[in-house]
């Protein structure tokens, strides 16, 4: 398989260096998920803090790089930079004593409507801030006006048609516009998309997603990264069930196949039925110690979410 090829390449070059494996620290040692792995590939996330920067240890004795075709081992999580900023966001949130929910869904599943109903119920008692991700417009942010919440809009359009998710730098850019110290809870309403947002941590404590019953039973299997990443699945638009052929047992079976532990909350943001249970969960997040996700995204290559219980070992 391909891993063998990978190792042969690495051995051929890394060993030639003066500093053979000082940046390969920790792999296969002491990391909970790879201690007994049969083939020791670098699946754990390299820690940028401990990781001597390649540019540091190339100085002086590698003048041949311009023409040499020299391989340097990088071992950098593709989402490493995002995760570093997510950790910075998380530190700011913790310092301000505010808990953060990253709310994701496909377009039109009902995130904004759910937020309206949430603010209607919780806003006076709970001080809530919203980070609103929207590719080009302020339409969603406008819908949240007048509920007493602090709303910071992040347009993700960048000239190329817009980013498909909120990442940690974008959320960070919104923080100066929110009175963090005066808030109990921030809900990050991500861009509607079942793929990309699951990969980008923003510094949240917990991830939740809204699934609408109109989306069909198969979505957990089609978008397993998203469904596996979340702590709560809100099942919205239950008021439409009499008009649909959707098989909720099959949906739950599919959900459990990729995420055995997520809490499932059926509700209708339109009629309000079940919204109180969602609000109770948000209250738990604010008042309780439990339910916190790891800082890093699943994108770090760390199997910390979903089927991997975070409190293992």
């Amino acid at each position: 398989m391909t891993m063998g090829r990978f190792h042969r390449h690495d051995d051929g070059t890394v060993h030639d260096h003066d500093h053979p494996h000082d940046h390969d620290h920790g792999h296969g040692h002491g990391h909970e998920y790879d201690h007994d792995h049969p083939h020791p590939h670098p699946q754990d996330r390299p820690d940028p803090q401990e990781h001597p920067h390649p540019q540091d240890h190339e100085v002086g004795d590698h003048s041949g790089y311009q023409t040499g075709g020299e391989r340097i081992e990088v071992l950098e999580a593709i989402f490493g930079e995002n995760d570093r900023l997510a950790a910075a966001n998380r530190a700011d949130f913790d310092a301000a004593g505010v808990r953060v929910v990253n709310l994701m869904s496909s377009p039109g599943a009902g995130k904004t409507q759910l937020l309206r109903e949430t603010l209607r119920r919780l806003s006076p008692g709970l001080r809530i801030g919203i980070v609103e991700g929207d590719i080009e417009t302020s339409l969603d942010a406008d819908r949240l006006d007048g509920f007493g919440a602090a709303v910071a809009l992040v347009n993700t359009g960048n000239g190329f048609g817009g980013e498909c998710h909120l990442d940690a730098p974008m959320v960070r850019s919104a923080l100066p516009r929110l009175p963090l110290a005066d808030l109990d809870l921030i809900i990050v309403e991500n861009v509607g998309n079942l793929v990309c947002p699951a990969e980008f941590a923003v510094g949240e404590d917990v991830k939740a997603m809204v699934y609408a019953v109109t989306e069909g039973e198969d979505k957990p299997l089609k978008y397993p990264v998203m469904f596996r990443s979340v702590d709560v699945v809100v099942m919205n638009k239950t008021d439409l069930l009499p008009h649909l052929d959707v098989d909720l047992d099959l949906f739950e079976k599919n959900l459990r196949a990729v995420n055995p532990r997520a809490r499932l909350l059926p509700l209708s943001a339109r009629t309000g039925e079940g919204v109180d249970a969602w609000c109770s969960w948000l209250n738990e997040i604010v008042t309780g110690p439990g339910g916190r996700s790891p800082v890093a995204s699943t994108g770090a290559g760390v199997p910390a979410h979903g089927a991997e219980p975070s409190d293992r070992e």
Partner: peptide, 8 residues
């Protein structure tokens, strides 16, 4: 999900 190496 990571970059393992680059060849300069």
């Amino acid at each position: 999900c990571h970059i393992t190496s680059i060849v300069l």
